[in-house]
Design a protein around this nucleic acid. Sequence first.
DNA 1: CTGGCCAACTAGAGCGCGCTAGTAGCGTGC
DNA 2: GCACGCTACTAGCGCGCTCTAGTTGGCCAG
Lengths: 348, 348
Amino acid sequence: MAPLRVGWQQVDTYGNRRPTMADVAARAGVSRALVSIVFRGEAGASSATRERILRVADELGYRPDSAARLLARDHSRTLGVLLTLHQPFDADLAEAVHPEAEKRGYDILLATNAPGRSERKAVEALLSHRCEALILLGPGSGSTYLDELGRRTVTVSVGRRITGAHVDNVHTAEAKGVRQAMDHLLGLGHRRIVHVDGGRDPGSAERRRAYRAAMRRHGLGDEIRVVPGRQTEEAGAAAARSMLAERRLPTAVLASNDRSALGLMMAFARAGLDVPGDVSVVGYDDSHLSHLMPVGLTTVRQDPARLAEHAVRFAVERLEGEGVAPREAVLDPKLVVRASTGLPRDDA
Amino acid sequence: MAPLRVGWQQVDTYGNRRPTMADVAARAGVSRALVSIVFRGEAGASSATRERILRVADELGYRPDSAARLLARDHSRTLGVLLTLHQPFDADLAEAVHPEAEKRGYDILLATNAPGRSERKAVEALLSHRCEALILLGPGSGSTYLDELGRRTVTVSVGRRITGAHVDNVHTAEAKGVRQAMDHLLGLGHRRIVHVDGGRDPGSAERRRAYRAAMRRHGLGDEIRVVPGRQTEEAGAAAARSMLAERRLPTAVLASNDRSALGLMMAFARAGLDVPGDVSVVGYDDSHLSHLMPVGLTTVRQDPARLAEHAVRFAVERLEGEGVAPREAVLDPKLVVRASTGLPRDDA
DNA sequence: CTGGCCAACTAGAGCGCGCTAGTAGCGTGC
DNA sequence: GCACGCTACTAGCGCGCTCTAGTTGGCCAG
């Protein structure tokens, strides 16, 4: 005798089984396959039948089951996105990825890394859900792991350039952005320009390097000063406090991103310093806060929509084109001058 | 003759099929069922076999397939979380939900609503992935829809109190928080206190009501003034500008949340006003920026960890306990006094 | 020696879909 | 008249797992 399955699955609070394709097919008087055709939007059903099936499905409250779909399909048509919830720029990116993926007929699955929840774990979760490609927003993992990952799965790194790994890269030309910012500061007459570093956060290494290069190019190698930090308001504020404590206030600060710049400005304000009267501040990202700040923040704009567009395109083209090699897209950033930068103070 | 499946599924960039339980079983010389038992951590395998299976799985790089698992299981043990990426408080909550769910053996699936991507769509996505319960962070949908949803699926609303719908509610005692804030302001001698509203954003209605009640209770019914807004920095700044334009500056402003308060403070600063010298500002949430602000923000603290804990507990208990009715948890907020509030200016 | 019990393990249906191979029915051209 | 093509539809396997209902073998009591 056939074994009977006792526990029924997927019941609502009334104990009703949730309807499946078979239910719709039975009620519409057609085969399951035809319902499948209709729901996939494929050719092969007359418009009359199509409408009837959709009507019946609606009556029953039928919704396709992603789990079953994922399992049965040759291609899951799902992109996994890894982000850090607390990075507003990641939110901008993730939001831009959505419509871009939809346009190409792909679904999105989100996973987050947070303190206590490692990036690897989040990636494993995405892969276990059959994501065909991964879009990693500012991944923190080492390039060895990412290389391994990139060979298993189509992988795109956004906002952090991964060298020597089998992954697509999409990022802005950090060096170019920093150079614009530095030229702007140097043009105003600043010499004692400090860089508040972003530590291991995405883009930081490139920005730091570009700062150093710009200083040297202008014969200011001796003035190079990098204050350690991270891409958070807290770190920016801490950096400001440490500069104040050391009584070595520069005339200008180039922050690793807007959040750090925001922290800097807040701490300077607390100390009674005027921006840009006493010290100029430049950020990076052009987050939505930059133009709201009491003193509008001069910053380097990155365009999340275009970054997202390239990321999705790279992923999809590599999934669909046979044997396409990983590529790199480098977008041009643009300096946005607002009120947080001005002439150096007199005593300097 | 049996039809042959041509397209193989889930291949890596080398064209290798990803290993399944059957592969592990074959290599370890056991049945698939036993591998399943081991990976589910159930009793019924000797520790020697257990270790061997895990070793073989590791050698092959086997990872369980969530899609298949979801499909086969009686209970998916998956909670769907809906959030707004751009709300930092949602990020705090979502981050706190994760470990709480894990502790109870549940998985998390994230979905976001964004401009252009409706909440319903996000919810449908979660349901299609077989989430057993939904944890909605500040849901924006109407109670009719949420009621319908709550009867189909175990649903918890966090941060927004939904009345008359079959859902669990977890939120702070908004009235109590606002009352504390108002008592603080009134105690300082403020009378002309304006509320900058959060519009339809979560918690706004309760906060607005509590503001009105507090004003009336102190015989200040005539002074009640609600400036429309939203829970964003932009809206706060706009509200500040409109107050300045009307030349009717209150002595204190109670904002709907910290983001709005931040916008207010920035706009006031731009206008050359001193906080709290010219105007006091109170926020809501106690986001991590509150204590970094140039002038520390007086605000009402909500504890995201405790909110998350209750939300997960409600969901899980209702899933596992038969016929448990939806409940409500109301957590006590706490006023945190910092530097953004002080005595009313003299002319008032 | 027999029977019973338990721990360790296996067989195989089925979750809800996608997809290939097939069929039925109906013009259409010669 | 028949071959042909085309549209509209169906049959049924298999995706990788879970889970019920077994089976097997070893050990011990009677």
